[in-house]
Computed example of a mutant assay.
Amino acid sequence: MKILLLEDDGTTRSHIAKALAAAGHVVDECGSGEDAVHLATTGEYAVLILDRMVPVLDGLTALRQVRNAGVVTPALLLTAMDGISDRVEGLLGGADDYLVKPFATSELLARVQVLARRPPTIESITVLRVGDLEFDLLRRTISRNGRRIDLQAQEAKILEYLMRHKGEVVTRTMLLENVWSLHFDPGTNVIEGHMSRLRSKIHQAGEVPLIQTVRGSGYRMEEQVS
């Protein structure tokens, strides 16, 4: 498989690259965070291996930029920083795994294999579509048949949740928990109000209604509603 390796120390980079190549991998090497961002966002890789302590643009900052660009390739951070807070920061910054220097080559190879076996996450989906309705998750833009649709934040959250569960019945409880983070029913018509406004924006005259009310259960989003 193809791997991107960011390491500013030439000796260390050569050692890691040779070990990966000996294990049958193809390695693209770079010594700067800027080059890593460019390669990761323009190339196809199975795993990213990024040294955190790189001058100018460090590995973690580079990884954040890569994630912001929508790249979800599994990433392993290499670092001499072994504090718990450092590891947490790395994982929250977009890393999938964290390996502290010095490390055994066998462990590095094993971690790379494990990362490469992970199935794509739901976040690898960047565009949701139901019929002629499209939600670009990276740009946070919504359009239907070429018509731009502007939604309020909560309306967009509802729509995204419905589109991710198209064809399924989405209950009131599910919306309260996943859109409003409420684990109780406030006893108001907040959902109904938002749903009414959402429907008025995505359903115009002559367009097929995409959101169906399932009486006594909730809502369902489908490409066509009978």
Rank of each mutant, 00 (worst) to 15 (best):
V54C: 03
D35C: 07
G131F: 11
A110C: 12
V170H: 06
T12R: 12
L198Q: 03
P74K: 05
L60A: 07
Q65F: 09
G83D: 10
L39C: 04
V71R: 11
L63V: 12
A23Q: 08
L20W: 03
Y98A: 02
A156V: 06
L6P: 00
E160F: 04
R197A: 08
R140T: 05
D9T: 02
M174N: 01
G10K: 09
M221T: 05
R220N: 00
L92Q: 15
S181V: 03
R164F: 11
V208R: 11
R197G: 12
D8F: 04
A153S: 14
F184I: 08
V169I: 13
A153K: 13
L175W: 01
R197T: 10
V56G: 02
A153Q: 11
G83Q: 11
L115M: 15
I125P: 01
I142Y: 05
L138C: 06
G193H: 03
L48K: 10
L92N: 15
I149T: 01
Q152G: 13
G167H: 00
A21F: 07
A40Q: 08
L210K: 01
A62E: 03
T11L: 10
Q204R: 14
T126Y: 04
F103I: 11
R172W: 08
F103Y: 15
T173D: 14
L176E: 05
D185E: 10
M163L: 12
E134L: 08
G167Q: 07
D8T: 01
L175G: 06
G206D: 11
R87W: 02
V37M: 15
V169H: 04
N145I: 03
A69S: 14
I125C: 12
G70L: 04
V127W: 09
E44F: 14
V56S: 09
Q152Y: 10
E207N: 06
T12N: 13
V72W: 04
F103P: 10
G59L: 03
V170M: 02
L137Y: 02
C30I: 07
M81F: 06
P102A: 13
V225P: 00
A110F: 01
L57F: 01
R129M: 13
T42I: 10
D51V: 09
D132C: 13
N189M: 03
V71D: 08
R148V: 05
S14L: 10
D82V: 12
R13N: 07
T105C: 13
E192K: 09
E168D: 11
L91S: 10
A36D: 01
Q152P: 00
S226R: 05
T12K: 03
T73M: 04
D97N: 13
H38G: 00
G33A: 06
M1T: 10
L108C: 13
V72T: 14
T141D: 12
L5D: 02
P55D: 09
D58W: 03
S181Y: 08
A19D: 09
Q154G: 04
G187H: 03
R199D: 06
Y219F: 15
R129N: 15
T126E: 15
G146N: 06
S14C: 04
E168L: 06
F184M: 12
L78W: 07
I202E: 02
G90C: 04
T173V: 13
L138G: 06
L182D: 09
T126W: 08
V47E: 08
Y219C: 00
G83H: 07
V114R: 06
R144T: 02
V71F: 02
R13F: 07
G83E: 14
E123G: 07
L60N: 04
V56Y: 07
E29C: 09
L162M: 02
A17L: 04
I125E: 13
S196R: 10
V88W: 04
